[in-house]
Design a protein around this nucleic acid. Structure first.
Lengths: 203, 203
DNA sequence: TCCGATCCTTGACCGAAATCAATCTGGCGG
DNA sequence: CCGCCAGATTGATTTCGGTCAAGGATCGGA
């Protein structure tokens, strides 16, 4: 069915291929979905992990662009083919509906963060979210939230995810380190030292 | 199938009924979907217009609460019944999937507004959005964006939608009026005098 | 028509985060 | 091993929008 493709970190996943739009399934790696304003301010509107579906089947084409954050493997489908196939396979459509509903829930929760939370709350919420998302990367289920993990994001990308500037993100990280809430052994490594404190900060 | 219910303006739509969760279809009126932080800050995460679907079929219950903005009529279903019915009717699931994908797109566009736009940009974007949404309320299709319309929101609710405070919303409205971009004949009435200016402001 | 409640507007002030501007770090190629 | 450079941190300053605090408008009910 779909064709395998590899995308290296930083590379965009092109949505035009043989004049036909694509949809895709993530096999491995992490990708960002972004939308930008006319003057170039960027907002990350979604993050796709393995097994997540990306693209916009049925009609309209979505405005978001997709870029790999880590080296990634995806399984791409020409959209027309996919649409036809989906219509004939209710089980697939059902699965897709469940995933889309779950993604909508997650997106709505993120709206509260963007619209109503302060910078410290945003950072704390982000770290807790990451610690959960990156925990069950492997094959075994529910190992619980990770204490130590490597972010698939640069500081700028964290800023684009939280609706902040890179400087504010950096300052908040520094503050959490100074307060002994987290350790930052490497640029993208986080170790949660005081989860309770983070949860309090997250509000 | 579903039971008709009327909800008057300001009244919440309860999701518990005879120990079974509900899903619903909006027949008439406008409702808000909100999520709040622990300390009571509120964010409107979605707005449901006639023909929109609300609630969370299949598994998890969504965290959002639903309140009618205007008097509304909805058609409610016990979720268990709905789930069973949907699984047996692929056409319904397909329709629901299309709507959910469209809602996800709209929600993602709103994230850019919340995360990256200034107060003037937020207000301008909001007014243009409203002018389009409230245009085809009636039966005829595509009359184009409305020049004059009545908001289904109080100032506080506009603030909750845009991630601002009521004072900032008020000041921005006043400024647009002073600049001759809009007229505000009544508390909730908006007349767009200079659409081009609004579009420029929206960015 | 008057009253009261609620919603909205306006003003003065403050503070959190953005902006502007240097450094600093660490990873990599030569 | 050294120098380079993108990414990250830190500091100084500004600004936008929030907070606090009065008023003013509008609507419904007596």
């Amino acid at each position: 069915m779909g064709r395998r493709r590899t995308v290296s970190a930083g590379e965009p996943l092109i949505w035009e291929d043989d004049d036909s739009l694509l949809v895709a399934n993530v096999i491995e790696g992490v990708l960002k979905l972004t939308t930008s304003t006319a003057d170039g301010r960027e907002q990350i509107v979604g993050v796709a992990y393995p097994s997540d579906f990306i693209g916009r089947p049925f009609g309209q084409t979505s405005a978001a662009s997709v870029v790999a954050l880590t080296d990634a493997r995806v399984c791409v489908f020409a959209r027309n083919d996919f649409d036809r196939f989906a219509r004939d396979h209710p089980e697939l459509e059902h699965k897709l509906l469940e995933r889309t509903l779950a993604e909508l829930d997650r997106t709505r929760a993120w709206m509260v963060l963007l619209g109503r939370k302060s910078a410290p709350e945003k950072i704390a919420t982000f770290l807790l979210d990451m610690s959960e998302r990156l925990a069950d990367n492997g094959c075994m289920a529910h190992t619980g939230p990770a204490k130590h993990f490597t972010l698939p994001f640069s500081r700028q990308q964290v800023a684009d995810l939280l609706g902040l500037t890179i400087e504010t993100v950096s300052r908040q990280f520094t503050k959490l380190k100074a307060d002994g809430v987290v350790a930052l052994p490497g640029r993208r490594d986080v170790e949660i030292l005081d989860r309770a404190a983070l949860q309090t900060l997250a509000g």
